[in-house]
Design a protein around this nucleic acid. Structure first.
Length: 324
DNA sequence: GGGCCCGCAGGG
DNA sequence: CCCTGCGGGCCC
């Protein structure tokens, strides 16, 4: 039987999906010529028109794509790995179990997740060190290709793709610079080329005086609003239509989520901002946004969860079996 | 698995 | 300085 939570979730997902459809975002606005079979000379023109880097345009962001065939990963590997997706910072920690299998099949995993380049490794060969670029800019970051993958949010920050280590939204007066999709809200819909996103705020991070929490994330405990700094920035994005960098994380429940770590998925615009009842016990209001992927970017890798079921609103295997 | 605490980057 | 936030490590 279906839990109450799951029921509400499905209902919200349907509403979000309907909204995307009403905006014409239920299917790609373009035929993914991105799915290049053979790397016949990448048309140099298309990068210029849409995936444009705002104002400054030094070093056209590399839009080269990872080998497309490598998008598949062994289904059994994925299954094995699904229990140990904890961002793989297992160094020095019990390394036994399935983690090793993950490690062993690093190549297909890397492709499914994105590509790790030398550009995003710090001086120690890790995801740390000083920034070379300013994250407070709109559009691509020079030298960071769509599909670039990091083990943790720190790497995204160092490479100026998404500055905050925790926060989902980064931005300024003319709109958001970047957002992170990391499964914080279970009723967001992800179609890859479009998705719905939930704003921030309305969570009780500090607890009470007697029971201080000092958390970084927490359940919804009040309404969100567009007065919230970050929600305001995203709303602004829907007006200015400035491109927003998007990263997807391993916690996201979507077939477009990397199996581990975080991946840069390129530029999107915010097509609409609205409010609705969120997925929480009291039905607190949340700010929602519809994102649309700009054309002419490298194809998104797709997780093969099941040979059959590769439908759109994907729930992870464990999510379906678990009730709340 | 869940709970807790922490550093950190950003915005005001 | 203050506050926040779709992390992450650790301990149980």
């Amino acid at each position: 039987m279906i839990s109450q939570y799951e029921q509400s979730r499905q209902a919200n997902i349907e509403k979000n999906a309907a909204l995307l459809k009403s905006l014409g975002l239920d299917k790609p606005a373009f035929e993914p010529k991105e799915v290049l079979r053979k790397p016949k000379a990448v048309p140099p023109r298309k990068r210029k028109q849409s995936a444009t880097v705002d104002e400054d345009d030094e070093g056209p962001a590399v839009l080269e794509e990872p080998p497309s065939k490598a998008q598949r990963i062994e289904p059994q590997d994925l299954k094995e790995g699904s229990g140990v997706r904890r961002s793989s910072r297992n160094a020095g920690k019990a390394v036994d179990y399935k983690g090793e299998i993950l490690r062993a099949s690093l190549v297909p995993l890397a492709y499914s997740s994105g590509v790790k380049t030398t550009e995003n490794t710090g001086p120690l060969g890790r995801e740390e060190g000083p920034r070379k670029h300013n994250p407070k800019t709109y559009g691509h970051i020079p030298g960071v290709a769509v599909g670039t993958w990091w083990e943790s949010r720190q790497g995204c920050s160092v490479d100026a793709i998404h500055a905050p280590w925790v926060g989902g939204i980064s931005g300024g007066p003319n709109g958001a610079y970047s957002v992170a999709l990391s499964g914080g809200y279970d009723d967001d819909v992800d179609l890859g080329y479009a998705f719905t996103y939930t704003g921030s705020g309305g969570r009780d991070l500090k607890g009470t005086k007697n029971a201080p929490k000092n958390l970084r994330t927490a359940p919804q405990s009040s309404d969100q609003s567009f007065e919230n700094t970050f929600n305001k920035m995203l709303k602004r994005s829907s007006e200015t239509k400035k491109p927003v960098r998007v990263i997807r994380g391993f916690k996201l429940k979507s077939k477009y989520a990397p199996s581990e770590g975080y991946r840069y998925d390129g530029l999107y615009t915010v097509e609409k901002a609205w409010m609705e009842k969120g997925l929480n016990a009291k039905g607190y209001l949340v700010c929602k946004y519809a994102f649309k992927r700009l054309s002419g970017q490298a194809a998104l890798p797709v997780r093969i969860v099941d040979e059959e079921d590769n439908q759109d609103p994907v729930t992870t295997p464990e999510a379906t079996s678990k009730s709340r």
